[in-house]
């Protein structure tokens, strides 16, 4: 990237972060696109089809483009490019305006390490990218390991050593459920740890404890899976609620009250219903066209399609 492009990208006062409300026309287009793409993605429930593929590609492309734009404006530009640019200008006695926060020439070090990452694309210099990874992994591990040990090992151990398996409620009475919970946690941790000790043969009492560990693991996985299903249901509920709201002729009272007074929400004009019909018609048309093509093409050496 040459200096003029860098200067242009780093210009102060460039486009500020976007607002979620970008005017009425944008809101109308956004509403119809949101409904259309939601329905297009749901056509996958029927089967993989070109409409789903189109929506999927647009979604991935738009998401990544938006993320890149946001990453530039919220991360790279304010944290690296602008302070470094100002520091460089100041170093050669041409200050580019008032000093920037965190303006320092030391930023050259992370900038160079960042550029090293891209050397993965140049085989001869790819080894330099390991310096960046080594720094990143080393710094993360150095910061994290001591704190992880305290938070995830010492704290729980301290808790169990302090309370054992006897819990009390707020009034100081013995709490059955709390005590059962503590007992289950203690037994579960020991049993699961023994299950993962493979240097001892699992037979006799060790086998019994390891089996108990498996039961605890299965209960844990079951609870996690149940919560996972619940999370997916919540997403479905959110999307269907959105489709229902946009199947009406006018914006919901909720949307009206939540919108800024100078920018009322657009009326959906039955967007869901219109787009549902259009997308079903498109899927049917594409299916018929596909069947027509398959019916017309007879592969060499293959028997003609049977009719009747």
């Amino acid at each position: 990237m040459n200096l003029s492009v860098l200067t242009m990208l780093a210009q102060e006062g460039a486009t500020p972060p976007p607002s979620v409300w970008q005017g009425h026309t944008a809101a109308v287009i956004g509403l119809w696109l949101a409904v259309g793409f939601t329905l297009a993605i749901y056509t996958f429930l029927y089967k993989d089809n070109p409409i789903f593929k189109f929506a999927e590609h647009v979604f991935v492309g738009a998401s990544n483009g938006y993320l890149l734009w946001q990453a530039w404006h919220q991360t790279v530009k304010p944290n690296l490019v602008m302070p470094l640019w100002h520091a460089l200008r100041a170093a050669v006695h041409h200050p580019a305006g008032p000093p920037q926060p965190n303006e320092t020439l030391w930023l050259i070090v992370p900038a160079v390490l960042c550029l090293f990452l891209f050397l993965r694309f140049i085989p001869k210099a790819a080894w330099l990218s390991r310096w960046s990874f080594a720094f990143y992994v080393g710094a993360s591990a150095g910061n994290m390991i001591p704190l992880q040990v305290v938070a995830y090992i010492f704290k729980p151990m301290d808790f169990h050593l302090r309370y054992g398996i006897v819990a009390h409620d707020a009034d100081g009475h013995f709490a059955w459920l709390g005590s059962f919970n503590l007992l289950a946690t203690l037994v579960g941790v020991i049993a699961v740890l023994i299950y993962f000790v493979f240097s001892i043969e699992h037979k006799g009492p060790v086998k019994a404890v390891a089996r108990t560990g498996v039961i605890f693991l299965m209960i844990g996985f079951g609870a996690s899976f149940g919560y996972t299903v619940m999370a997916r249901q919540s997403l479905l509920i959110g999307k269907v609620q959105n489709l229902i709201d946009n199947a009406r002729s006018e914006a919901t009272e909720d949307a009206k009250s939540n919108a800024p007074p100078d920018n009322p929400p657009p009326n959906p004009h039955h967007a869901t219903l219109w787009l549902l019909v259009a997308i079903i018609a498109a899927v049917v048309a594409l299916e018929m066209a596909k069947k027509g093509r398959e019916g017309g093409e007879v592969p060499q050496g293959a028997a003609p399609p049977q009719t009747g």
Binding site: P17, S19, V20, Y66, L67, Q74, S257, N258, P260
Partner: peptide, 19 residues
């Protein structure tokens, strides 16, 4: 979390602030 989070948070906070 990610650069995507703040534009979303802005919308939520401003809407809740109006309410």
């Amino acid at each position: 979390q990610s650069p995507n989070a703040m534009p979303l948070a802005q919308g939520i906070v401003e809407e809740a602030a109006r309410d």
